[in-house]
């Protein structure tokens, strides 16, 4: 896909996904296997199934000449909690008869939702998003993750103090949590590489 467009019109989500994963959501023929095997596609979890997300992305691409309509479809995919509820278990990607990297598409949707300020507003999606952001920030800053500081920081941001309150001491007793940060790694090279990418014309955000 990805015939370069004149006048550098913004890429569709389908095109961004093709760049990142090397597979095209336009190949999806709506068989529903991803939805059928997704552990999160159930009542109380996903409202929009992965199959339907693929359809929304196809519709955005189909109506690319009608920006208002195309944007409507893109927003429905980006604003949906579905990408946040995706566990990244890769069952859909593994089984897709058309070879579409559906889990990879969810990665792109989360990144784009954040960039465009469209990420789902519900509490649960927010919790998951905060966790991912804090985790990544810490990984980049210290080079290593330790559980206790990560947990405390997350709870500080989102509440949920009562949840699993009893587990902490039990884990401490078993030596599974440490009270202090005890190790780290040098991430200067990583940060520079990410920064280089950010500056490069094509490398992304």
């Amino acid at each position: 896909m990805a015939t370069p467009k004149p006048n550098a019109a913004p890429l569709t989500l389908a095109e961004l996904i093709a760049q990142a994963t090397g597979t095209s959501v336009l190949h999806c023929y709506q068989c529903g296997r991803c939805a059928a095997g997704c552990p999160q596609n159930q009542p109380g979890a996903m409202e929009i199934s992965p199959t339907r997300v693929m359809r929304l992305l196809q519709l955005e691409a189909a109506f690319v000449d009608d920006p208002a309509r195309a944007d409507g479809f893109a927003r429905r995919a980006l604003q949906s909690p579905t990408p946040w509820l995706c566990l990244g278990c890769q069952a859909c990607t593994t089984r897709c008869p058309q070879g579409v990297d559906i889990a990879g598409a969810m990665d792109v949707l989360r990144g784009q939702a954040l960039q465009r300020g469209l990420a789902a507003k519900d509490r649960r999606s927010g919790d998951i998003r905060t966790f991912h952001q804090q985790f990544l920030a810490k990984a980049l800053r210290r080079g290593r993750i330790e559980e206790l500081p990560l947990i405390l920081r997350y709870k500080l941001a989102r509440g949920h103090w009562r949840q699993d309150a009893a587990l902490g001491p039990a884990m401490l007793r078993r030596g599974k949590l440490k009270l202090k940060n005890s190790h780290s790694a040098d991430t200067r090279q990583v940060l520079k590489a990410i920064d280089d990418l950010r500056r490069s014309p094509r490398g992304g955000p």
């Binding site: 990142a20 990244g88 989360r110 966790f131 990984a139």
Partner: peptide
């Protein structure tokens, strides 16, 4: 882990 690829492919 999951968090990095979930929100930032490059990172």
């Amino acid at each position: 882990a999951t968090s990095a690829h979930a929100i930032d492919h490059n990172a």
